[in-house]
Amino acid sequence: MIRFDQVSKRYPGGHEALSRLSFEIDRAEMVFLTGHSGAGKSTLLKLIMLMERPSQGQVFVNNQNLNRLTSRQIPQLRRQVGVVFQNHQLLFDRSVYDNVALPLVIEGYNPAEAGRRVRAALDKVGLLSKEKQNPIVLSGGEQQRVGIARAVVNKPKLLLADEPTGNLDPALSAEIMSLFQQFNDVGVTVMVASHDLALIRRMNKRVLGLANGELAHDGVLQHAANAETV
């Protein structure tokens, strides 16, 4: 589903965020991405979303070489990737319903079909009763779940999350993670960037550990000693 081939990303000014990074994530896999801040987690996700382009190497998403996509084709790529952000990126000038419906409106769904899908997504994250509210009145955990509903409303095959539990307490974080687990269970490829190692260890999934833009760890985290090296 995702393949990085010798990918480097150098920013103007000389800072190298990623250097010759290679890895592959299979369809329907669930992977965690860890590393200290500045290790290149965000850059990696941005490359998948084509918010950045690599300085060197190639990124493949769904067997499509992203280097070959023109800027006019970027929207088509982003429609296939659901993204959850740490700061939710919700719009506070419209209701929960309209926030979740946004990807469907963009894709040109007819309103009736869009309505069915939005309610299904809101039902899935347990916020169906709040569809008419403004997201600003919701709690942090609820806002994050609105963000998740928006990310999955058009049934993407790939779901990315950048520190989705960054501002949440452990109970809420576990709840969010179990949602991701459920999407993964129905065949969605899920990639979660997080530095909540305790939570990651409990999930018992493959972990990609980044350090200074290189892959420092690839595999399941089992015990605390192992985690220290990540």
Partner: peptide, 19 residues
């Protein structure tokens, strides 16, 4: 599939026109 990906989620041009 990447470029055509969005299409398979949809029911047809009529819906897209409506949208």
């Amino acid at each position: 599939n990447v470029r055509g990906g969005a299409k398979v989620y949809k029911t047809g041009w009529k819906d897209r026109w409506q949208g």
